[in-house]
Design a binder for these strands. Structure first.
Lengths: 387, 387
DNA sequence: AAACTTTGTTTAACCAATATACAAAGTCAA
DNA sequence: TTGACTTTGTATATTGGTTAAACAAAGTTT
C-alpha cells in the first residue's frame, strides 16, 4: 500500500521498530541497547518505550547486570497484553489454538469436518472460535484478532480465490468472520502461515531465506525472503503443488498433468490401490515403524518425488534452509533419506554448500501458530520502508 | 541547517511519490491534480515540485484546459535531464542502447561475442559503453547509470552468482563496471529486466500481475506482482528454466533432469540432430515461413513444451497477462498455436477467463530497455512504505 | 461586471526526531 | 570510604517537513 510521508508515519515506523526489537529479544534489552540496535536516538527510544508501557505492550522487568555503570532496566514484551486465535483449515479437519501475543499456546481445539461446503465449515469455525474466545483469560486487550490458514490461494483482501481441495472459489472469508466476531481477521495460505510459524517460533528462527514446504493432502510452499514473508505474492506464489514434474503424467484436478502433488503428497494413496496396507499417513507411519515393507516403499517413493520438486525449488530460490512441514512431516524417518539422495544427486554443488533441509519443529501446529502470528502482527502493526 | 535523518526519509518518500506520479503521467497533470492523486497537501506538492524543477527533473509545460477556474499549469517529466545505458548480455552477442530517462532509445549498438570468458566480455562491454557515452547528447546530469541484463542469477550486490550459459560464477560485475566508469551500475537477471521493460514501455503497461517468459538460449521468467518486480530471493526467483517437467528426463547441466529449457528453448536444437534443417532461430523462422515442415514441426514441439511450463506458472502465479519474449518470440507464428492449445487444455477454467498471452512488443530490445530503466529508477530514487 | 471556480502560494502552527546537557545509579581502584 | 569513571535514562531547545487555512491569481459563467 502506498502511503504519504508525515510525522505520524515516522512515528509508526519507529514505534514498530522499537516494539518488534523488544518483542524479539524480550527481557534482555535496555532502552540504551534498543537505541544502539535500531540506530534511533536514546530520547526517541525513551519516548516510544514510555508510550508502549502506557499501552501495556511493554513492561519494565527489573535491573540487568551492569558493565561498569548504572544498571540497565530490562524491557519485557508483554505477551499477555492480549490473545489471538489461530486456525488451520484442512480438508477433513479444523484445528485451532488460542495464543498469547508471543505465540504461546494457551488452549487447543480440534474438530472433524464431515463436509466442506462453506456454510457447514463456517458454522464449525464460528463454534470453535466462540468457544476459544470464552476460555480466553482476562487480558488488557482481550482477543485482538483471528488468523486462518487455508489450503488455497488467498488475495490481499482475505478472499479465498480458489481452494481446489475444498471446492471453494471466491469466498470472502475475512469479511464473513469479521462480521461475525467484530475482530480483525487475517486469511493466509496454509503454507505461508506455516512458514511464518517456523520462522518465528520453530525450526527456522532468524533464517533470512527460507523455503517451507507443506506436504499433506496437497503440497504448498511458503517463501521467506530477507526474513519476511514475501507479501506481494500473498496467496499466489508458493502454489507449487501444481508444478508439473511429468510432462505426460497423470491428469490433475487443476487441469494440468503430472503435478508434483500427485506424486509426493497424500494424493498418492488414492492411486496406490490395494498393495498399500493403509491409506492415511498416521497409519502408514505406524506400519512403517513396525517394519512394514509396503509402507516404507511408499514413503521412499514419495521421498524421491518430494526431492525432485524440492530440487526445482532450490534451483529457483536458492534458500538457506528448507523446512518440510505438514502432515507428511510425521513420516520424516522414511522420507528424509530418499529425498536427500535425490537432492544431492540433482542439485549443483554450488547450491549444496549452503543448504540445509530439516523437518518442521512445530509439527502439525505450525500453520495454526503461524496464522495466529499473522493476527498478532496485524494488531501490533508492522510499518517499514524500502528505499 | 542539519537534516535530521528521519524527516529526510519523509521527504524522500514524498519526493518519490510526486516525481513518479508526474513521470507516469507526464504533461497531463497540474500541481492540484498531483495533490489529489497522491493525497499530499497542495503546499507540500508545490514545494516538492519547485525542488524538482530546480533539479531540472520536472518542467512546466504550459497551461491546460480550465474547467471553470484558473488554468492548470501542466507538469512535464524532463526525460532529457540525463541518459542511461541499457545492456543485454547474451551468450553470443552484446546489445546496448542509450536511453533518456523516459526509456526512449537514442542510440543502439550491437557486438558479436567470439568467446564469453569474463575478461573478453568485460573488454567488449567497456568498449560499447565508452562509445555510447561519447555519443550521448549534452544533458544536465549526463549519463547517470548503466543497467545490465545477464542470463543468470544475480544477488542484491550486483554479483553474478551463477550464469551457466556463460560459464560465470561469482562475478562482481557491478563493482567492475562501477570502477571503470564511476557511474552507478545495476545488474539484473535478463528476464527480470525484460519484464520491467514490457511493464513500463511495452506490451504490459500498467498490468498488475505479469509473467514474462524469456525464451532464447535458455528460459527465464520475470514475475511482476502488484505492479512490482517479484525479485524472490534477490534475483533467484524466476530461474524457472530449470523447472523439471520430466522427472526422468534428459540430464541438464544444472545437475537436475528433465529441465524445462531442455525442451522449450534453443537448447533443443543441440539434440535435434540432422533432421533439423538449421540450428538457430532466425534461420528456422525463415525456413518455417517458406513452408519447411521440419522447422514448423520443431516449433510446434517447442510450443507444446513452452505451454506446459507456462501452465505450471499460471497455476502458481495466476497472472493477468503473460508476455513471451526473448529470441524465440520471433517464432511467434509457429509457437503460439501449439502453446495456446496446451495451455487451454491444461489450465482450469478459473484461470483462463482472466488470462491473456501475448508476445513481446519491445522485441529483442525489451531486456536492454528494462535494464536501462532499472538504472533510471536507481537514479531517481524509489522510496516507499509498507504498512 | 459580479459571482463563482479552480489553481497555486504564503503563513503560522504542529510534531517527531535529534543533539546536548544533565541527572541518576552503578563500578572500580586506591 | 572516597573520588573518578561508566553507563543508563530524562529534560530541553532546536530543526525541518507537513499541514490547514487564509489568500492571491487567473480563469469561467451568467
Amino acid at each position: 500500500m502506498k502511503v504519504t510521508g508525515d510525522q505520524a508515519l515516522v512515528k509508526k515506523i519507529n514505534r514498530s521498530l522499537v516494539l518488534h526489537t523488544i518483542r524479539k529479544h524480550s527481557s534482555t534489552l535496555s532502552r540504551a541497547r534498543v537505541s544502539e540496535m535500531t540506530g534511533l536516538n536514546k530520547a526517541t527510544v525513551s519516548n516510544l518505550v514510555a508510550e508502549l508501557c502506557e499501552q501495556q505492550l511493554v513492561t519494565e522487568v527489573g535491573p540487568g547486570k551492569s558493565s561498569g555503570g548504572r544498571k540497565p532496566l530490562l524491557l519485557h514484551f508483554n505477551a499477555m497484553a492480549g490473545t489471538v486465535i489461530g486456525i488451520e483449515l484442512r480438508v477433513k479437519q479444523l484445528t485451532a489454538v488460542l495464543c498469547d501475543l508471543g505465540g504461546n499456546v494457551l488452549e487447543e481445539r480440534d474438530h472433524t469436518l464431515a463436509r466442506h461446503d462453506l456454510s457447514y465449515v463456517l458454522e464449525a469455525m464460528k463454534k470453535v472460535i466462540s468457544n476459544l474466545m470464552e476460555t480466553a483469560p482476562d487480558t488488557p486487550y482481550g482477543t485482538v484478532g483471528i488468523g486462518v490458514g487455508v489450503p488455497g490461494m488467498v488475495d490481499e483482501n482475505g478472499i479465498v480465490l480458489f481452494a481446489p481441495n475444498l471446492g471453494w472459489e471466491m469466498v470472502h472469508l475475512r469479511q464473513l468472520l469479521e462480521e461475525a466476531f467484530s475482530v480483525p481477521v487475517t486469511i493466509d495460505n496454509e503454507a505461508n502461515a506455516g512458514a511464518q510459524g517456523e520462522l518465528n517460533f520453530g525450526a527456522a528462527k532468524d533464517v533470512r531465506h527460507l523455503l517451507y514446504i507443506s506436504a499433506g493432502s496437497g503440497i504448498g510452499s511458503g517463501i521467506i525472503i530477507g526474513g519476511e514473508l514475501y507479501k506481494g505474492a500473498r496467496g499466489y506464489a508458493g502454489e507449487t503443488g501444481h508444478m508439473c514434474i511429468e510432462a505426460d503424467g497423470r491428469p490433475c484436478t487443476c487441469g494440468s498433468r503430472g503435478c508434483w502433488e500427485l506424486y509426493a503428497s497424500e494424493k498418492t494413496y488414492d492411486t496406490a490401490g490395494t498393495a498399500l496396507p493403509a491409506h492415511n499417513t498416521p497409519e502408514l507411519v505406524r506400519l512403517a515403524s513396525e517394519g512394514n515393507e509396503a509402507a516404507r516403499k511408499q514413503f521412499a517413493q514419495m521421498g524421491k518425488y518430494l526431492g525432485i520438486g524440492v530440487t526445482n525449488l532450490i534451483n529457483s530460490f536458492n534458500p538457506e534452509l528448507i523446512v518440510i512441514g505438514g502432515a507428511l512431516s510425521e513420516a520424516r524417518d522414511w522420507l528424509a533419506g530418499p529425498m536427500q539422495a535425490v537432492v544431492a544427486e540433482r542439485t549443483l554443488p554450488y547450491h549444496k554448500q549452503q543448504l540445509e533441509i530439516t523437518f518442521s519443529r512445530l509439527g502439525s501446529r505450525g500453520t495454526m501458530i503461524g496464522a495466529g502470528f499473522a493476527a498478532v502482527m496485524h494488531f501490533l502493526g508492522h510499518a517499514r520502508v524500502t528505499l
